[in-house]
Design a protein around this nucleic acid. Structure first.
Lengths: 133, 133
DNA sequence: CAGCATCCCATCCGATACTG
DNA sequence: CAGTATCGGATGGGATGCTG
């Protein structure tokens, strides 16, 4: 039931034919979830604590924050550092590998930015053509 | 119930705080699904027919192919051209906007490629530390 | 050939209550 | 503070049968 989001390393990842498609899937699986990006961006400037993340990543539940953090940690995108004591204090820090994600993601953002209105209009046109209910 | 994958244009898209996060979400929502990339890559070199796609995008079902094609068409990433006659003949062609996606996706692929083994090892280490069952 | 309709399961994700 | 445990709804996606 994979509630922990853990997958086998021996992924099938055959789904495309063209080379690099599989590699792309790997990247998207890491970053495509609802919260991963928000967390990584929040952790990029410097280490953040759990409670900071619940505030900075708006709308996230403690459950999804925990699950996503664990996955990012597992993939080596975040380091988790526990400062012993009471109250507990845990810091998450983006790894260099995670910081390198910034560039590719900026490229994607730029694309979305360039075409935002075109996409919006395409949708409107499509929905007008067909029914939207 | 959204079986057609249609979402409102007025997305909440608040989930991050940092600017550009929302824009990034929009892009990922378009391209993050299991099949969108494979289809777009297959359609990039030139127009493809439905049946070609069922072969080139390995593992896809007719259902998911249809759904994903409709979504890509709705977002203006594919043009659908029906040649009347019997048997039916439908061509899908990537739009210029879709072709521009190639660059950002290549950046992501390059990232995944650079760090593939690092990620794999991070996972193995994590799973060794904690239990993998 | 190019779909659509239906059924069903797996996973994602949110809400909530509890804990060291 | 930083989680874990449990439940339940929403969504993604596969299998299959039917149709113009």
């Amino acid at each position: 039931m994979r509630q922990d989001g853990r997958e086998q390393d021996g992924d099938d990842c055959a789904g495309g034919g063209r080379d690099g498609d599989c590699t792309l899937r790997e990247a998207l699986d890491r970053v495509g979830g609802k919260w991963a990006i928000g967390i990584l961006l929040a952790a990029s400037p410097g280490p953040v604590r759990f409670s900071e993340l619940t505030r900075q990543v708006e709308g996230i539940s403690r459950r999804m924050l925990t699950l996503t953090l664990r996955n990012l940690e597992r993939d080596g995108l975040l380091h988790r550092l526990v400062h012993p004591g009471v109250p507990p204090r845990v810091e998450y820090r983006a790894t260099p590998m995670a910081l390198e994600l910034y560039e590719p993601l900026r490229a994607l953002t730029a694309w979305a930015d360039r075409h935002r209105t075109a996409i919006s209009e395409a949708r409107a046109a499509y929905d007008r053509q067909n029914g939207r209910g």
